[in-house]
Write a protein that binds this DNA or RNA. Structure first.
Length: 259
DNA sequence: ATGGCCGGCGCAGCCGGA
């Protein structure tokens, strides 16, 4: 099956691109980030008409995540455990049955953390601690589990065209990168890095002709549990979508699993 | 060489993003 993650930067502004890409790529399951919509405002019918089940976890104006799936979504949970006072809609999880097996999927929109020196950066790091705790609990199930989304972390210098330009940025701080490595050390496989050593990007800023200059970063990641990694067939970044009219600044990352 | 954007909200710019 074909699963994907895509930060669409506003589902209302992106509905044409989203439906065009769903028709073109025909993924079985997609995690969306930054829907920037309340649940009632999500264009559910247009997406259901393409054969998808829809689960959303939205909020007004900012953030918001969703899962689209051709297979029925079971056991949908919303919000990342560990802080009942956190009101930002950044995590959704569900299970799909693939024949006799199950696939568990967590879709996340990790806090940006900028600017440094404000409360936003500690919030990011605390969120990553909570994610680590939750991921460890899920890995203990020893089932195919995919944790994917916009991590807002540039893991290594090769993951930026101009790493020097990101030195003062929350996405490339040592603490952010270390927290990402701690997550991997739990036993996850970074699907992109498992299949290529090449420099590849998932985000290009709207400013300064970044896409035309290929001045990008890799911050959208697909992490596979050992059981999911065993089923890994291939990975594809749909970079061409960044060149469409009214694009998101992120592009879809697609993973094929033999499930 | 430098600077360059976009979406939501809501109807003017500001906030947030990366």
């Amino acid at each position: 099956m074909k699963i994907a993650t895509w930060n669409i930067n506003g589902v209302k502004a992106r509905i044409e691109a989203l439906t065009a890409w769903l028709r073109e790529a025909s993924p079985d399951l997609v995690c969306l980030q930054e829907i920037k919509s309340v649940d009632e405002g999500f264009p559910r019918l247009e997406i259901e008409s393409l054969g998808y089940n829809v689960a959303t976890h939205g909020q007004k104006g900012f953030n918001g995540v969703a899962i689209l799936s051709k297979l029925p979504l079971e056991d949908v949970t919303r919000g990342l455990p560990g802080d009942p006072t956190d009101e930002q809609a950044r995590y959704i999880e569900a299970v799909v049955s693939v024949g006799p097996r199950v696939l568990r999927v967590g879709g996340l929109y990790l806090p940006n953390g900028n600017p440094l020196g404000t409360e936003k950066f500690p919030y990011k790091l605390a969120w990553m601690r909570r994610l680590e705790q939750h991921a460890a609990e899920r890995l203990a199930y020893e089932e195919p589990f995919v944790l994917m989304g916009d991590y807002n972390v540039i893991p290594d210098p090769i993951d930026a065209r101009r790493p020097d330009a990101w030195l003062g940025d929350a996405l490339f701080q040592p603490e952010s990168r270390q927290a990402y490595r701690r997550l991997l050390a739990l036993g996850f496989t970074d699907a992109v890095r498992a299949t290529t050593e090449a420099q590849v990007f998932t985000f290009w800023d709207y400013q300064a002709g970044a896409y035309q200059k290929n001045d990008g970063i890799r911050i959208d990641h697909v992490l596979l549990s050992p059981q999911a990694a065993d089923a890994l067939v291939g990975v594809h970044i749909d970079s061409h979508v960044r060149g469409w009219d009214k694009p998101s600044d992120h592009v879809p990352v697609v993973v094929e699993l033999a499930l």
